[in-house]
Amino acid sequence: MELSTALVLNAIIAGLLLGGLYAAMSVGISISFGMLDVVNIAHPAFIILGSYIAYIVNDRLGFDPILVSVVLSPLFFALGMALYRIYYLCFEKRGQESLRGLAFFFGILFITEVALVLIFGVDYRLVQTAYGQTTWRLGAVDFPLRLVVPFLVSVTMVVSVQLFLTHTFFGRAVLAVAQDQLALRLMGVNPVRVKELAFALSIATAGVAGAFLIVIQPVQPSIGREFIGLAFAVCVLGGMGSIWGTLLGAFVLGLAESFTSTFFGPSWAPAVSFGLLLATLAFKPSGLLGR
C-alpha cells in the first residue's frame, strides 16, 4: 500500500495536537501517583467534571470554556484539598492505602460519573467557541484551532507545573516528599501539608484539562473511564514522577493513536493506549525517562 505524504503529515500533526490534550490530562496523575504515591484513579472523573462545569458556564453565559476553567481552578484546588484530607485520615494514616485506597478512589469515580448522568443524562454535550469552526491550512496539512488552542494552553500549563516544581521552595518540597519525608520534617516542613497542596494542584489541572477536552470533542459522563488507562499509560510510559516524561509520553501516545485511527480505523484507537500501557508495564516498568 502506498502512503500519501499528506496523510502521514496530517496524522503526525493530529497526533501531536492530541498529545497536548493527553499531557494536560496526565500531568495531574504524574503528580499524585508519580510523586505523592496517591493512586487517584478517579482523576479522569474530575476531568469530566471540569468539562461539565465549562459546559454549563459556556451554555448559560457564553464565556470561553478554557478561560472559565482557569478562573474556576481554585474550586478544583479546594476540592482536591478536601479529598486528600479524607484520604489521609482514612487510609494513609492507618497504613491501608494500597487496597482500600484504590477502592475508595474507584468509588469516587463511580459516584462522580453517576451523579453527572443523573443531572445531565447520557447525551453528549459540546461547547461553542470563537475558534471552534476555524481551521488553518499549511499546504496539505490541517491545523484545526479547536485542537491548536488547547494544545498551546496545555503545553504552557505543563511547562509551568514543571518550572514551579523545580524552581520554588514548595515545588522542591513536593519532589522531596517522595524521597525523604524525614528530611522534610527536619527542615520544618509538614509532609502531609505538602502532599495536600500538591494533590490539590493535581486536581486543579484536571479541571482545566476537562475544558480542553470539551473544546476538542463532545463529552458524556462515562467517557472518563476510557481516560484512566490513557492517563496512567502516559505517566508510566514517560516514567513515574517525571513531568518532561509525561509530556513525551503524551506525544508518543497521541501519535500512536492518530496513526492507528488513520490507518486502521478509530474503533481500534483505545486498544493502542491500553496495549502500550500493558506492554510498558510488562517490559519496561520504569518508562522512557524513568529513574
Binding site: F232, A233, V236, W268, A271, L281
Partner: peptide, 24 residues
C-alpha cells in the same frame, strides 16, 4: 513484575483491550 497498583491498572487496561477486540 507488577505489584499493587500497577497490577490493578494493568487489569483495567486488559479489560479495555479485550473490549476493543470484541467490538472489532
Amino acid at each position: 513484575r507488577l505489584r499493587g497498583v500497577y497490577f490493578a491498572i494493568a487489569t483495567l487496561a486488559l479489560a479495555v483491550v479485550l473490549y476493543t477486540f470484541v467490538i472489532n
